[in-house]
């Protein structure tokens, strides 16, 4: 298991107590009820299609994951060795729950899914992500997305 509580103290402290940047408070943006929202998922699992370029450590970049591809085609080039991959091996929805999102859309709990989801590689310095994340935000806005679930690993 890769529960933090079960890790040896030294390695656990390296992960938990790593130096993190300070951010000014970002005001929460409002929006319509969930049932009217268009939702995208952004993962930092380093997922991409087999033919996509691998992630490069330290570089702010993302890969596009179209809604309608076979999610079982996704592979993971995340550099870290310190998280469980066996769950992802068995079920991609554990990391990128597009199937769950489709179900919620069918039921009317959300308005619709975004045509695209996005993957970054965690372990990238947040400052290196600023420009590319702000650029992604413009894309999301142009696509009418008004709700983003950010899921780390």
């Amino acid at each position: 298991m890769v529960y933090l509580d079960e890790m040896p103290e030294g390695p656990r402290n390296m992960i938990v107590n790593q130096e993190l940047p300070d951010y000014e408070e970002t005001r929460c943006v409002g929006g319509p009820p969930l049932s009217d929202r268009k939702i995208a998922i952004v993962t930092t699992a380093g997922l991409h299609r087999r033919e996509d370029k691998h992630f490069t450590p330290g570089v702010g970049e993302y890969r596009i994951i179209p809604n309608e591809i076979d999610m079982d085609e996704l592979i993971m080039s995340h550099v870290s060795t310190n998280f469980d991959r066996t769950g992802f091996y068995q079920d991609v929805n554990l990391v990128l729950p597009v199937e769950r999102l489709k179900e919620l859309s069918t039921e009317g709990q959300i308005g619709e899914l975004s045509e695209y989801h996005y993957s970054f590689m965690g372990a990238t310095p947040p400052a290196a992500l600023a420009a590319v994340a702000e650029d992604l935000a413009k894309t999301l806005q142009n696509d009418g997305v008004n709700g983003v679930v950010l899921a780390g690993v």
Binding site: Y23, T26, P126, A133, A137, L140, G147, V149, L150, A151
Partner: peptide, 16 residues
């Protein structure tokens, strides 16, 4: 992940 939330929400899109 927290950084991405600040950047994306700061650009006007709600995040969790």
């Amino acid at each position: 992940m927290g950084g991405l939330a600040h950047y994306i929400e700061g650009a006007g899109i709600p995040t969790v």
